[in-house]
Computed example of a mutant assay.
Amino acid sequence: MSTIITLEDGRQISGPTGSMGHMLELVADELPQEFLRMKCWLIDNAERCAPCMDFDVRGFPIEARTAFWVATRQAAEKITAEYAKTNWTGNRIMLLLRMHDGIEPLEDGEEFKPYDDCQEVDFDDLWFTTGA
């Protein structure tokens, strides 16, 4: 089974559920305390089966989205130092960042808009954990 994460510009990255779950746990570990609800949600999401792990970054509030990308970059630095990009998790996190970094900038004042079916992510929708 595979898991899909959709980026702001609509492109998607997929990978084995176990590797993607591990990646989400590493990202969650890097989130600051003020994003505790999001951290709990990412850890909870990482334990779900595919396709229930799939999510769209456009559903994150702007502040949470920014924190997600900062934490993803920090997690990537740690995992590449530890595993030298030789495993699926390292491969997926580096690809995710390359895709994010490759998003074309928009005109001044323009923002990526969620597609019609994209709902805001509910960080209180937990399956396995009780949250903070």
Rank of each mutant, 00 (worst) to 15 (best):
T3P: 08
T3I: 02
T3N: 07
T3W: 02
T3V: 03
T3Q: 04
I4T: 14
I4Q: 13
I5Q: 07
I5R: 09
T6H: 04
T6I: 08
E8H: 05
D9G: 11
D9L: 11
G10E: 06
G10Y: 01
G10D: 08
G10T: 02
R11K: 09
R11Y: 04
Q12F: 07
Q12I: 05
I13S: 12
S14E: 07
S14V: 00
S14L: 02
S14T: 03
G15E: 12
G15A: 07
P16F: 06
P16T: 07
P16R: 12
T17Q: 07
T17M: 07
T17N: 05
G18S: 10
G18D: 05
G18R: 13
S19A: 15
S19P: 12
S19C: 09
S19T: 06
M20F: 03
M20L: 11
M20D: 07
M20Y: 08
G21R: 01
G21C: 02
G21T: 02
G21S: 03
G21D: 01
H22G: 11
H22F: 01
H22S: 13
H22N: 14
M23V: 09
M23Q: 05
L24T: 03
L24Y: 03
L24H: 00
L24P: 07
L24I: 04
E25Y: 00
E25W: 01
E25C: 13
E25N: 14
E25P: 02
L26H: 12
V27N: 02
V27C: 04
A28T: 05
A28P: 01
D29L: 15
D29P: 09
D29H: 13
E30F: 04
E30D: 08
E30M: 11
E30N: 06
L31Y: 04
L31V: 10
L31H: 04
L31I: 13
L31C: 09
L31S: 06
L31R: 03
P32T: 09
P32S: 03
P32Q: 01
P32E: 06
Q33I: 13
F35G: 09
L36N: 09
R37D: 14
R37E: 11
R37T: 08
M38K: 06
M38I: 05
M38P: 08
K39M: 10
K39Y: 03
K39G: 12
K39H: 06
K39D: 03
C40W: 15
W41S: 13
W41C: 13
W41D: 12
W41V: 10
L42W: 01
L42P: 06
L42H: 04
I43E: 14
I43G: 07
I43W: 10
I43P: 02
D44A: 08
D44K: 11
N45Q: 14
N45F: 03
N45K: 09
A46P: 10
A46I: 06
A46C: 08
A46Q: 08
E47R: 15
E47L: 14
E47I: 05
E47V: 04
E47D: 14
E47M: 13
R48A: 00
R48H: 00
R48L: 01
R48I: 00
C49N: 13
C49H: 11
C49F: 05
A50K: 13
A50G: 08
A50P: 12
A50L: 02
P51L: 01
P51N: 06
P51A: 04
P51F: 01
P51D: 01
C52F: 15
M53F: 02
M53C: 15
